[in-house]
Design a protein around this nucleic acid. Structure first.
Lengths: 348, 348
DNA sequence: TTGTACGCGTTATCAG
DNA sequence: CTGATAACGCGTACAA
C-alpha cells in the first residue's frame, strides 16, 4: 500500500529535472508546464513567464522518452545499407539524411545482416516500435526482411533496388536502360568480346542491368564471361584478375557498378594494362570518384541524389499516410563517356 | 470521472497488440506476461507455455518506447561526423557501428552543424534523453558543443580530435609525431620548398600535425606556403591550383589528410604534372583509396580502426561508469611510402 | 485560464 | 507462483 521507488540503477543520475519539478518551482500544476512548453494559447502571460523562467532556471529539457510513449511515435527512421565504407552508400546516406532531418526525423544506421534468418533475432529493433519507418537500400529479390516488415505494418520504402511481387513504395533507376546504354556504347566501339563483372545475382539492379546488356548484345554470353559477386572493390579486383589470367581475355568489361569498376581498373593497371588500349572498362552510378583524373571512368550515371531524396520523402509520406497506394518511381540514367573506354584495338 | 481515450492520430494503427492483450488471451494478469517474457524463473511452466503461445499467436512485440521510459535508457548513442560522403568518416562510422552494435547500442547519425550557435536549437536531440551517449569526431578547439554536452552530464567521447581544457575521454593519434614523420620524409628526399595544405586551423589534428612539421623544418613557413581549409577533396584541389599558379611553386605539398591529398593530386595531374617528378604529395590517414594503384599515395598512417573501436568502448564504459576518471588514449602513427613522393628533381 | 485525472505500455514491488 | 498496484514523464479531455 505504500508508494515505492526503484533505485536508479546507480549509473543514471542525469535528466533529473522533470516537468513536475518545474511546476513546483513555478507554483503551478504539471499540466500547466506542459501547456506552456507546447505553446498552448490560452495561458495567461503571467504564468507563462513564471513557468518559462522556472524551466530556464532549472535547465529543464522535456523527456523524449516520455513524449515518445505518449505520442506513439519515435521520430526515428532506420536506414538500411549494405556496407558503410563502400562509397556508394555514404552518398545515399548523406542525401537521405539531409531530407529526413529536414522532415524532423533522426536516422539510425542499420547494416544489413545479409537476410540470414539467424540474424533476424538481432533485428528486433526493426519490429518493435522504436522506429517510425524504414528505408531499405539492400533489398534482394528473395529477401524476407522487407516482406516481413511490410506484413508487420512497418512503413517501408525500397530505394535503389526493388523486390518482385511486393507492393511497397519503390524508388529506383531504369536499370534495364542503363544496361542497354552500356552495351550499346561498347558495341559501337567495336567490342565483341565483352565480359560482365556484375553484382549479386539476386539483386534487381544486377538482374536489370544484365537484362539490358543482353538485349543489345542479342546473344547469350558464355559462362566464363559472366561473373557475380558483392558490390565491392575487391570483387571487381578479383574478377578482373581471373579474366586476365585466361588465354583469351575479353577486350571490355562491364562492371556491376563504379565501386567494382574501380576494383577492375586497379587490377588491370596493377598488371600493367592500359585503358582503353588494352581493355575497356565501364561502370554504373557515376560516383564522384569516377570523375577524378586518376580514374576517369566511363559509366552510366544514375541520379542517386534524386533517388535518395525521393525515397526519403516517400517514407515520410508513407508514415503519415499508411494506407495510400504505393508509388513506384523510376529515374532515368545517362551514359557518361570518359577515358576508360575506347575503340577496339586493331592489333597486327 | 469517466475514462478517456485520445484518438490515435489516424496515422497510427500499428503496434496494436500489447502485453495486456496477451494477458487477456492467456487468461492471466498483464504483469505475468511481462514476467514470462523476461524469463522470470518462478513461473509455472504451464502458464509460461500458455503465455508464450498467446504471445506468439498474437504476434506480440514488446514496446521499446515503454521499456525505454521504464528503464531510463534508450539504447541509442549519437555519432557526430562532419560529412557523411567524405571517405574518412564512413571508415570511422563503420568500425564504431560494429563495436556499438555488439555492445547492444544503436547508432543515430548526427551531422555536425558546424557549431554555429543558431543551430544548437536544432540539436535538442543532443540534450534530451533520447541518447545514452555521444561520440564526437568533429570537435574543434573552440567548439562549444562538447563542453555544453559534458556540462549537461551527457556521456561523451571525443574521437580523432580533442578539445583543450576539456576533461573528457579522448581517443586520438599522435598527430605531432605524424607531422614530424611527414616532414622528415620530405626533408630526407631533399625538399626545401615545402607547402602545407592543411585542414581547418581550429582543429587539433591540424594544429598538431603542423606543429610536428615545423619542429622538423626548424623554420617558419612563409605565409603563402601555409593554407587552411575544410578536410575535403575540393579544398585540396583548389589549394594545389593556387600554389601551382604562382611563379615559384613548391616542390612538395603536405596535405591535411588523404582526402585533401587526393584533391591535390587530382589538380596536379589534371594540369599535366607528374608525381613525384614535378611534385611530391603526402597525406595523413592512409584510407583504403590511398593504396589504389591509380593513387598510390605516400601518407602517414593512423589506425582509424583502433581509434574508432576504442572510442566506442570508452563510450560504453562511460555510460556505465559516468563518474570514473576520463582516459586519454593516443595511438601511434607510421609513415607509409608509396609513389607520390620522391627525390627533389635536380633539373638542369 | 488552470487544476484534476488518466493513459501511453512497461517493469518492479508487495501482498497473498 | 501470481495478481494488484505503483511508477517512468508527458500530453490532453474534462471539469471548474
Amino acid at each position: 500500500m505504500t508508494p515505492q521507488h526503484d533505485l536508479p540503477s546507480g549509473a543514471e543520475q542525469r535528466q533529473r529535472v522533470t516537468s513536475r519539478d518545474v511546476a513546483t518551482a513555478a507554483g503551478v500544476h504539471q499540466s500547466t508546464v506542459s501547456r506552456v512548453l507546447n505553446g498552448d494559447q490560452r495561458i495567461s502571460s503571467d504564468t507563462r513567464k513564471r513557468v518559462e523562467a522556472a524551466a530556464e532556471q532549472l535547465g529543464y529539457v522535456p523527456s523524449r522518452r516520455a513524449q515518445n510513449l505518449r505520442a506513439r511515435r519515435s521520430g526515428v527512421v532506420g536506414v538500411m545499407v549494405q556496407d558503410i565504407d563502400n562509397a556508394f552508400y555514404p552518398l545515399l546516406l548523406s542525401d537521405m539524411h539531409r531530407e529526413l532531418t529536414a522532415a524532423g526525423y533522426a536516422i539510425v544506421l542499420i547494416v544489413d545482416p545479409l537476410h540470414r534468418r539467424a540474424d533476424m533475432s538481432r533485428m528486433r529493433q526493426l519490429f518493435d516500435d522504436s522506429l517510425d519507418g524504414v528505408l531499405i537500400s539492400t533489398a534482394t529479390i528473395d529477401s524476407e526482411t522487407p516482406r516481413a516488415l511490410h506484413a508487420s505494418g512497418m512503413p517501408l520504402v525500397l530505394a535503389v533496388r526493388s523486390v518482385p511481387n511486393l507492393d511497397v513504395d519503390t524508388v529506383e533507376s531504369d536499370n534495364v536502360a542503363a544496361g542497354r546504354e552500356a552495351a550499346r556504347h561498347l558495341v559501337a566501339l567495336g567490342h565483341t568480346d565483352i565480359a560482365v563483372a556484375m553484382g549479386p545475382k539476386e539483386t534487381s539492379t544486377t538482374r536489370d542491368r544484365l537484362r539490358g546488356v543482353l538485349e543489345i548484345l542479342q546473344t547469350e554470353l558464355p559462362p566464363d564471361r559472366v561473373m557475380h559477386g558483392p558490390y565491392r572493390h575487391e570483387t571487381g579486383y578479383a574478377m578482373c584478375r581471373r579474366l586476365m589470367m585466361t588465354d583469351n581475355p575479353p577486350t571490355a568489361i562491364i562492371a556491376g557498378n563504379d565501386v567494382m569498376a574501380i576494383g577492375v581498373l586497379d587490377a588491370a593497371w596493377r598488371s600493367g594494362l592500359s585503358t582503353p588500349e588494352d581493355l575497356s572498362v565501364l561502370g554504373f552510378d557515376d560516383i564522384p570518384m569516377a570523375a577524378w583524373q586518376a580514374i576517369n571512368l566511363t559509366t552510366v550515371r544514375q541520379d542517386s541524389k534524386a533517388i535518395a531524396e525521393q525515397a526519403a520523402r516517400r517514407l515520410v509520406d508513407r508514415i503519415e499516410q499508411p494506407d495510400s497506394p504505393p508509388h513506384h518511381d523510376i529515374f532515368p540514367v545517362s551514359l557518361t563517356v570518359r577515358a576508360t573506354t575506347g575503340p577496339l584495338r586493331t592489333d597486327s
